[in-house]
Simulated assay, not measured.
Amino acid sequence: MRENTVEARTWLDAEFPDIASGKSTTKDWNAKFRRGEMSTDDGERSGRPKDVITDENIKTIHKVILNDRKLKLNEIADTLKISTVLVYHIIHEYLGMGKLCAKWVPRELIFDQKSRRVDDSE
Rank of each mutant, 00 (worst) to 15 (best):
E3K: 08
A14S: 13
V85A: 14
E15R: 09
A102C: 14
F33W: 07
Y94D: 02
D55C: 09
E93Q: 08
D112P: 01
E44F: 10
E3T: 09
A31E: 01
G22W: 03
A20G: 03
E44N: 06
T10D: 08
K99Q: 14
D42R: 11
C101E: 15
K50W: 03
D18G: 10
D13K: 12
E93N: 10
M38N: 10
I91C: 00
I61D: 01
V105E: 15
L109W: 13
R2G: 02
M38D: 07
F111S: 06
Q113H: 14
T10Q: 15
D42V: 11
G36C: 04
N74C: 13
H92Y: 04
E44D: 09
E15N: 07
K59P: 01
E3Y: 13
K27H: 11
L95C: 04
K32C: 05
E56V: 14
L71P: 02
W104F: 12
E122V: 08
R48D: 11
K70F: 06
E7D: 10
D42S: 14
K103I: 01
D119Y: 12
T5D: 02
V64Y: 01
D13I: 15
H92G: 05
E122P: 04
T84K: 12
T40W: 06
K27D: 09
D120R: 13
F111I: 11
R35S: 13
R34A: 05
T5N: 06
K59S: 12
I53L: 07
M38P: 01
I53H: 02
S83I: 03
E7L: 14
K70E: 06
K59W: 11
D42G: 07
V118C: 05
L95D: 02
V64P: 00
R48L: 14
E56N: 14
I61G: 01
D119G: 06
D78V: 01
D28S: 09
V87H: 01
T60N: 01
N57L: 02
G22N: 10
K99S: 05
R34I: 15
H89Q: 09
T10L: 12
T25E: 05
I90K: 01
S46P: 03
L109T: 07
E56Q: 15
K72Y: 14
E15W: 07
T54D: 07
G96M: 10
C101N: 15
G36K: 03
F16L: 08
K103T: 02
I91H: 00
S21R: 11
T84Q: 09
S39A: 08
S121W: 08
L95V: 10
V105R: 04
T26E: 01
R2V: 11
L95E: 00
M38S: 15
P49I: 03
V87P: 00
I90F: 01
N30W: 06
L100Q: 13
E3A: 04
I82K: 00
A102I: 13
D41K: 15
A31C: 04
E56M: 08
D78L: 04
T40C: 08
R2H: 11
A8F: 06
F16Y: 15
N57F: 00
R116H: 10
K50N: 14
N57R: 03
R117S: 11
R9D: 03
K81G: 12
I19K: 04
W11T: 02
A8D: 02
L66I: 15
E56P: 00
T79S: 09
D55Y: 06
